[in-house]
Amino acid sequence: MTEAIQKTVQPIGVATAALETKRLSAWFGDLHVVKDISLTVEKNDVFSLIGPSGCGKSTFIRCLNRLHEETDGARVRGEVLIPGAGKRENIYAQGVDPVSIRRRVGMVFQKPNPFPGLSIFDNVAAGLKLAGVVRRNVLEEIVEISLVQAALWDEVKDKLKKPGTSLSGGQQQRLCIARALAVRPQVLLMDEPTSALDPISTARIEELVMKLRSDVTVLIVTHNMQQAARISNQTAFFLMGELVEVGPTKSIFTKPKDSRTEQYITGRFG
């Protein structure tokens, strides 16, 4: 793409981009694990991140809700822009409160992590309560909607008072998705959400992600190439902390421009 074309494309990007990173870098101590990543995720995309183990995918998406900096010795440089209050906002700008960012950019982790002390209901309501919602009927309504969205409602509607940890692994992961959805995030980050799950639970979560895209923009890290091909419309390939290639999922998988991408998706390394 030439400069000129980029300029003409930009306004449309501004209107619809759900998230854009500009020269984003991240470190663990002296270890530079995310290197100068610039990419744009459009609104209502399902955007998948693929790449060999240790290439920095998790670190990258943990930068997108300012969770990376919670690790001892972790550092970030660069910009992450998300739409907010009429204009786009850099979440790393000075004075931005990470807490407010994390309410707008939700996260689902690789291992299901419901709060051990809380019931199913309270797990889903946790984020709402943090945001100051106290009215019981409002909580009940949003909890139900979120559990329906996460395709878990039918299984748990009769035992909302049971502990969240009493569910199966797949159910727990859907509970965590419901918990993340309950606060209505603009963007949902998912770090290998199905890697600990059986094929049926995996299929349900994939289905769910595809349904979600009308409401929320999803970034999903996956090691499962078929999964990326099935559910995402955009794919980025990472290698050793660098962004090698990004584009429509179909073209990444059928005619990759970079030979390293081709090697990876045909299973020759990683």
């Binding site: 809700n65 969770l67 919670e70 807490v99 407010s100 994390r102 309410r103 939700g106 996260m107 982790f109 291992k111 992590n113 419901p114 709060f115 051990p116 946790a126 984020g127 943090l130 945001a131 965590c176 918990r179 993340a180 606060v183």
Partner: peptide, 15 residues
């Protein structure tokens, strides 16, 4: 207490 539980709370926008 696993870090995953702490991160779950932080990720939800907990102070």
């Amino acid at each position: 207490v696993p870090d995953t539980v702490r991160e779950a709370a932080l990720g939800l926008g907990a102070t």
